[in-house]
Simulated scan of single mutants.
Amino acid sequence: MAKWFLGLQLFHEHACVQLPYADRVERVSEIVKRNRKTYEKHSGDIEDAIRELEESGLNVNEWCHLAPESELQRLECIEEINARDDPTENAEENVPDYIYVRSATREMAIVAEPAAIDPTVLRGMYRNLNRKQASVFYKVRDWCVKRACSSKPIEQFFYYVNGGAGTGKSHLIKCIHAEATKILLRLPRLAEEADICKQTVVLAAFTGTAAFNISGTTLHSLLKLPRSLKPPYQGLGNKLDEVRAELSIAEILIIDEISMVSKDLFAYVNTRLKQIKGTDLPFGGMSVLAVGDFFQLPPVKQSKPLCVYDPTRLDHWRDNFKKITLTDIMRQKDDAAFAELLNRLRVKDKSHELSEPDASLLATR
């Protein structure tokens, strides 16, 4: 080995060669030097960074600066686990958990997946649902049970959960996602599959921030939508098989912040899912749970929101979706006066003046 290395060093320092595209003989060392200038412009900086890393060690807390939300969630989970007296308390016995195995050899895409919730914490979340939230939760749950137990197709559901800020819409999404996913993984067609790494319940939103808040993805990223949604419809082309495989077992689509979804985007989602699922059923046969508040942010670029009826075009929103309104304020439930003020502000027009009591209450915050 030493002789081979010595021979290589001598070749580098003293040998001369003529390259196929050159018209003269050059020293090997000059060729190497020239190529390093071209292809290793920042090699010195990289070597300095590696040397500094080796001397100072890896900063294990750097993640808290890159993703503070995830770091906060991690610390809260650790605190919750440490505070728990008995991890086996209220544990159910003889209840098998439905799990799935990820293939170690398969190339996986990086996706934002909801963090697994401890069963004890999840049961507490279920118990905290108010009457209206529970009615939606059990409607979806009953549909999932019928879907998992029946060999025949089950009619899709289309629900719109409406409610102002603080009414527990995000909490409801988490509960429905966890329960529906658990039940739908029992579908007979999935029972024999060893690699159930796809989603049965898909979480999506219009913006990246809204998608991040529910651990989902944007509609454009999920369905590979074009930047321009103007007709004619643009098919997926070569990406069809990729997206079809990703949504192969998807049964429910949950769209948060539905107020930001325009009529054009909603129509494109419907057409795209038809293409992906290979059926003419609305939204490709998938059930849809839309969540949001039309008093909040509207679609961008003056596009028409879904709640504005347009008689000149097919309206999937008006014709198919059943509206369920959440009315109980959960976030400020211990401050009823302030919660009622928020609801009054929610429906006020810019020309409406604040009453003196409301102005006084706002001045205290």
Rank of each mutant, 00 (worst) to 15 (best):
M1I: 07
A2M: 06
K3Q: 09
K3W: 02
W4H: 06
F5V: 12
L8K: 13
L8H: 08
Q9K: 10
V17I: 15
V25K: 14
V25Y: 03
E30V: 14
K33W: 08
N35L: 15
R36S: 10
K37Y: 09
T38V: 15
E40A: 15
I46C: 01
E47D: 14
I50Q: 11
E55T: 08
S56D: 14
N61Q: 12
E69I: 02
I78Q: 10
N94P: 05
Y100F: 13
R102F: 06
E107T: 08
I110V: 14
A112V: 11
P114H: 04
A115M: 12
I117F: 01
I117Y: 07
I117D: 05
L122H: 11
W143S: 04
R147W: 07
A148M: 13
S151N: 14
P153H: 01
I154H: 00
Y160T: 04
N162P: 02
G164I: 05
G168W: 03
L172A: 09
I173E: 00
A180F: 06
T181P: 04
L184D: 02
L190Y: 14
L190V: 09
A191Q: 15
E192S: 14
E192K: 08
E193K: 13
L203F: 00
G208A: 09
A211E: 00
S215V: 06
L219K: 04
L222T: 08
L222P: 03
K224P: 01
Y233E: 05
Q234N: 05
K239D: 05
A245K: 14
E246N: 10
L247V: 04
A250I: 05
D256N: 13
I258P: 00
I258H: 00
L265C: 03
L273E: 03
K274R: 15
I276C: 05
G285Y: 05
M286V: 04
F294W: 04
P299K: 00
K301F: 01
S303W: 01
L306K: 02
P311R: 09
T312D: 14
W317P: 00
I324M: 07
D334R: 12
A339S: 12
L345D: 04
A359W: 09
S360G: 07
T364P: 08
T364I: 12
